[in-house]
Amino acid sequence: MRRHSHFFLLAPLLVALALLFAMPAAQAQYANEPRPDAPTAPDQVQIYNPDESRLVGSVTIPDQNLAVLVQPEGRDWRSFRRDYLPWIIGGLAIIVAVALLAFFLIRGKIRLHSGLSGRKVLRFNSIDRFAHWTIATSFLVLALTGLILTFGRPLLLPLIGNSAFTALAQAGMAIHNFFSIPFVVGLVLVVALWIKDNIPNRSDVAWVKTMGGMLSKDGGPHVKTGRFNAGQKGMFWSIVLGGLGLAVTGFLLMTPFAFTGIWGMQVIHIIHGVLAALLIAAIIGHIYIGTVGMEGAFDAMGNGQVDENWAREHHAAWYEEQVRKGYADSPPNMAQRPAGE
């Protein structure tokens, strides 16, 4: 008696199978037809589609970011970082700069119709100016250091070499992080000081209709605006909201994964980049109008005193209020223009 009596029944079958396996062609066939009890459940296929979907599992180590096995989104983020972000930032900045140049060439410097009166009225006190210059300097530093990280590798690195560029980038990154503090301080001050004068009102509609008369060479009919006109209000809100967005996303970027996972971080980074691009473009416009773009404008933030004529022309309502409160002298005759103007 055999122990495995059915062995002999199986034997021919086994030989046949063995022969089958000997043929290379059979191997492929075999691979396609696993035995029914082999765990080739179709769901396995579902697991392995790394190109199409992220794979998240579990890990025993505390860092739950590492439970993400494959995140093909990394490649999307890479293409944003590599292919889009530089163009967004650079492109916007260039467009704005070119537009302003064109504006300057066509329209020229916006001058005062009545010329300078020589008499000054206090527009921004030292606290106002401190707030402005705090946020302004920090923004410039932030933008510059941010640009080093974005454009340094293609533009600077070939010029100065790896070691120097790393030192620059490292310093730039540290500076970028540290200047976020004065930036936020400035932002808070600015909001506290100026928010009440930046609430949109009816006169803004009129200002927007004519773009404050900037477009016409003769200045057009100036709308009687308060302390800030609609353009300035727009700038204010751009800085406040954009700055806030940058500050928040920046903070999140400095505390990576404290509040969100990998995809959150990628999105945050994208938001930070896009906001930065927008704000840089806006600030270029702001700088233009505050310096070469408009006669007498820089004084407001320079020494805080603006020319009465400038105040009257650009912020008539505010000027009248200053007069009423006694902060400014009553309007002199328009004809009293100083010689030489």
Partner: peptide
Amino acid sequence: IGCGYCFYACPFGAPQFPQTTNYG
């Protein structure tokens, strides 16, 4: 420079950093 960009881009979460949160 420890910016952490490589971690965002890596499909496999490979880059590791000595500091989890940072200032700088």
